[in-house]
Simulated assay, not measured.
Amino acid sequence: MAQPVRRLVNPALFICDLQEKFRPAIHEYEKVIATTQKMLKAITCTRKILNIPVFATTQQRAKLGETCSELGLDSSDGIATKAHADKSAFSMWIPDVQSAFESLGGEKREVVVVGIESHICVTQTTLDLLREGHKVYVLADGVSSCNKEEVPIALARLRAEGAVVTTSESWLYECMGDAGIPEFRGIAGLVKEFKSSTKEGLQALAKI
């Protein structure tokens, strides 16, 4: 039997503008947060093997507040981001993020995007990453907008532009690619742990 290998070799996670002040305004915001927590926990429990870098942004932090605390970004017991930058541009592909991203070696990556809003910041971030030659996955259970009707329109456009619209569970298994690799047991356990919230997130958000 051949030695198992990972299917995605250079993954990265982009977390777009998941700030506290957006909580009341965004359609099913808690489901987006739950999916992001799932992705971060997957990275944490397999960091010695997967080593997936995390990039996060806030939109005008002074006015719109900090990233939601339950994500634990850059906290002592959370995940250290490669960049956690503030911006006024809608796209995350700003100089601070670009610099941190390129410091990893410059190779093309498989970037998975979660956050808000689907039709604005998520869309423009995805378009910029595609333009740079990266493969981009947008999680249908990990993005939303103030108006829920915007979401399927944005996802349809991004699919047409060349992004892969998928789900958190599908991406995690694609990242592994083989049940024989060391991280499989940890990810399988995580999928089971988040089974209920994943189902709720798919029912609420993944109507594409």
Rank of each mutant, 00 (worst) to 15 (best):
T166I: 11
A56Y: 01
N51A: 15
R61M: 08
G162Y: 07
S75T: 15
K63I: 09
Y29D: 02
G72D: 06
P53T: 07
R109V: 06
T67E: 00
W171K: 07
A56W: 00
L139Y: 03
S170E: 14
V114I: 08
T198G: 07
T36Y: 05
C175S: 12
E70W: 06
H119W: 04
M92W: 03
A140L: 01
W171S: 05
Q60R: 14
E117C: 05
G162I: 07
K148G: 07
C121D: 06
F101Q: 04
Q60K: 13
T126G: 05
I43E: 03
A85M: 04
A156K: 15
T58R: 00
F14C: 05
D178P: 07
L13N: 01
A160W: 02
T167S: 13
C121A: 11
E169A: 09
H119K: 06
T126P: 01
K63R: 15
G106T: 08
H27N: 11
M1H: 13
I120E: 02
Q60D: 12
Q124H: 11
K82E: 15
L18P: 00
V191D: 04
F184V: 09
T123W: 05
L13M: 03
E102C: 08
L205P: 01
I26T: 00
R6E: 10
V151M: 07
L139W: 04
A188M: 12
E169H: 08
L172Y: 01
V136S: 03
D141Y: 04
I120S: 05
G105R: 06
C121M: 08
A154H: 03
K199D: 12
I181M: 09
L202C: 12
F184C: 09
G78Y: 00
F55A: 04
Q19E: 02
Q60H: 13
A188F: 13
V5D: 14
P11D: 06
M1C: 13
T166F: 05
C45Q: 15
R7H: 14
A89N: 12
C68T: 10
W93F: 09
T198L: 13
K87C: 04
K82C: 13
D128Y: 05
V112G: 04
T57Y: 01
K207G: 08
H27W: 11
L127I: 10
I208N: 14
K21V: 00
G162R: 02
I187Y: 03
C121W: 03
L50G: 06
S76P: 09
E150Y: 14
Y173G: 08
A89D: 13
Q3Y: 15
W93C: 08
E28R: 12
K41N: 13
I15S: 03
F22L: 06
K31Q: 14
K21W: 04
S99N: 13
P182A: 11
V164S: 09
A156G: 12
I79W: 02
E102Q: 14
P182M: 07
H27D: 10
Q60L: 12
R131T: 10
Q60W: 12
L202H: 10
L104N: 07
S91T: 13
E132R: 11
V111Y: 02
G72L: 07
L190M: 08
E132M: 10
T44L: 12
V113E: 00
K192Q: 14
A154N: 03
L71I: 07
F55W: 02
V114L: 05
Q60T: 10
I208R: 10
S118N: 03
A12Q: 06
A179V: 15
K48T: 12
I26R: 01
A83R: 05
R47S: 14
